[in-house]
Computed example of a mutant assay.
Amino acid sequence: MIQDDGGRNFAAAGPAGTDPGAEPAAVRRQAGGAESSRANRGWWDRNADEYQDDHGAFLGDARFVWCPEGLDEAEARLLGPAAGLRGRRVLEVGAGAAQCSRWLAAQGALPVALDLSHRQLLHALRIGGADAPAGGGGAGPGSGTRLPLVEADARALPFADGSFDMACSAYGALPFVADPLRVLREVRRVLRPGGRWVFSVTHPMRWALPDEPGPEGLTVIGSYFDRTPYVEEDERGRAVYVEHHRTLGDRVRDLVAAGFRLLDVVEPEWPEWNSQEWGGWSPLRGRLIPGTAIFVCEHDGAAGRP
């Protein structure tokens, strides 16, 4: 799921019992795994409709877009040649409305779309067509593709060991969890040895800059090395949105510790055709600094790793 500039340009509505018109307060403070999960489940459930309305046209119904830069899996082939996807079981982590999974199904893959947000998965049903028969080969509304949809926390994947040939995530789960190593170990557990794992996140260097698409977004205002989470709170001090920062080195060390072999780190350049602004992403910033980091990895094949 591509987030909207880390969610930091969105004003999340407060939870039940709060003033729905009150703007959440943005702070930097510690937030643990349970608090982050609870806050982000609520945020995405409340904001899924607006998110899909605002970005559905860019994401498409059955398009695999890795990032706001518009890098498309059909051309990038980070999961490998499209022909090699046929018959492969693929887990999409943080699938949102399952646009990427729908594209995978159109290539003949056997995707499972997992997300924390019930409302996002309802959009997946809407796009896929609630009356679509299982086992179809098309993609899009009413096309005959019914994808397996799973509502679950990525920190505890409800699948057996070695259930999938590949896994992928376009801005899903990892930016929002306090314990990314736990998620990575879970992904490795459900992958077969040698299975590929590709995920995209906000480029870590963006955390030192304002979330602004214009020139003001090019000035460093904080430390890149400050890992204190970004939290939006309601008037009672309860977290309603949480995002966590990891440096580039942190991401690499987490992957190695989880038992992955890092094959590539892709930093998509801003394409000439893309004139849109997406939160803090813009043609101005995108042509000067990276906005996205994509990690291409594979299960190292070793037995007995955590």
Results as ranks from 00 to 15, higher is better:
D234H: 10
V93L: 15
S117G: 10
A156Q: 14
G301V: 14
H55L: 14
I294A: 07
L71K: 02
G56E: 05
A34T: 13
G195H: 08
G42Q: 10
A105T: 09
L263Y: 01
W270M: 04
V296L: 06
I294Q: 06
S101K: 03
A134W: 12
D115Y: 06
W66H: 11
A293V: 07
D250E: 11
C67A: 14
V112A: 00
G14R: 01
R86Q: 14
G60A: 04
G42S: 11
H245K: 11
G280D: 03
M166F: 04
F225H: 14
I127Q: 00
D45K: 02
L116H: 05
R155L: 13
A31N: 00
E75W: 11
V201F: 03
D131R: 07
S36P: 07
A22R: 15
F164Q: 02
G138Y: 01
L122E: 15
W197S: 00
P193A: 12
P68V: 05
P268V: 06
G6D: 15
Q3G: 14
L255Q: 07
R28N: 10
H245W: 07
R28D: 06
H118C: 10
C67E: 15
E92N: 04
S275Y: 01
R253V: 10
S117F: 09
T247I: 08
N40M: 09
F64K: 01
V256F: 09
G144S: 09
V198P: 02
A130Y: 07
G172T: 03
Y171A: 01
G87F: 08
G137Y: 11
L263Q: 15
S117A: 13
V240P: 02
A178R: 03
D211T: 12
D5K: 03
A22K: 12
R63V: 06
L149G: 05
G94V: 01
F58T: 10
P271K: 05
F10Q: 10
P175T: 08
D153L: 04
A132P: 09
N40S: 12
W270F: 03
G142W: 02
S223Y: 02
